[in-house]
């Protein structure tokens, strides 16, 4: 139980995937213009990230390791993630057309989110990787991604109406803001030694 909480805090705050490890920056910059879309994206990413983290671990321990094909992990994880995303998309479309419409184009976009592949790869690199730790690590990474994405979207709505110098408008002030957020997140360093 303690270990689960530690993994969660580590993935959400101390080693936040966006602000500390700089993974998943494309959706972070791309879908943060409005809070509502950022929330939709967070929801979809949370589901896919948790699912694909577990699936990638199972692929690793049941297929790649017994067959001694560890060097194929990158390409096989990409395949697993793409399948997971497609499966999620089909399921959501059938089960809840409303949610499917809310999420829209963001669902297939998750395939190219490098945080998803990053979680899968970082997971199997650990010595004591297990089913539970993969699940919590994937979920924690997704929570951390969602947290900073929603906070960033709310900030960008405010910056959009600020009197920013012309040369810095749009993505450039967004990146400067992301840098300052990353600076603030350095305060969490050393909180947990894992």
């Amino acid at each position: 139980m303690t270990e689960t909480i530690l993994i969660l805090i580590s993935a959400v705050l101390v080693n936040n995937f966006v602000l500390v490890q700089f993974l998943g920056l494309c959706p972070f910059m791309g879908v943060s213009n409005k809070v509502e879309t950022a929330m939709g994206m967070s929801l979809a990413t949370t589901f896919v990230l948790t699912l694909s983290s577990v699936l990638a671990y199972l692929t690793w321990s049941w297929i790649l390791v017994p067959l001694e094909l560890e060097y194929l992990r990158t390409i096989s994880f990409i395949l697993v993630i793409a399948v997971a995303v497609q499966f999620t998309e089909m399921f959501v479309r059938k089960a809840s057309p409303l949610l499917y419409r809310v999420l829209g184009v963001f669902l297939p976009l998750i395939t190219s989110n490098c945080a998803v592949l990053g979680v899968a790869l970082l997971n199997v690199r650990k010595e004591d990787a297990s089913f539970m730790s993969s699940l919590t690590y994937g979920f924690g990474a997704a929570l951390g991604f969602s947290l900073v994405l929603v906070l960033f979207a709310a900030m960008r709505e405010r910056i959009a109406v600020a009197d920013v110098p012309v040369a810095f408008r749009g993505p450039s002030i967004g990146l400067i803001t992301a840098g300052l957020m990353s600076l603030a997140f350095m305060g969490f360093s050393g909180l947990i030694k894992l």
């Binding site: 809070v35 929603v150 906070l151 960033f152 709310a154 900030m155 709505e157 405010r158 300052l180 957020m181 600076l183 603030a184 997140f185 350095m186 305060g187 969490f188 360093s189 050393g190 909180l191 947990i192």
Partner: peptide
């Protein structure tokens, strides 16, 4: 628990980040 002795600056910046969401 953290790596820095005092944390007011970090805490204020972190909550600056959250202020628009709180609003």
């Amino acid at each position: 628990n953290g790596g820095y002795p005092d944390a007011v600056a970090f805490a204020v910046l972190l909550m600056n980040m959250a202020a628009p969401t709180i609003d």
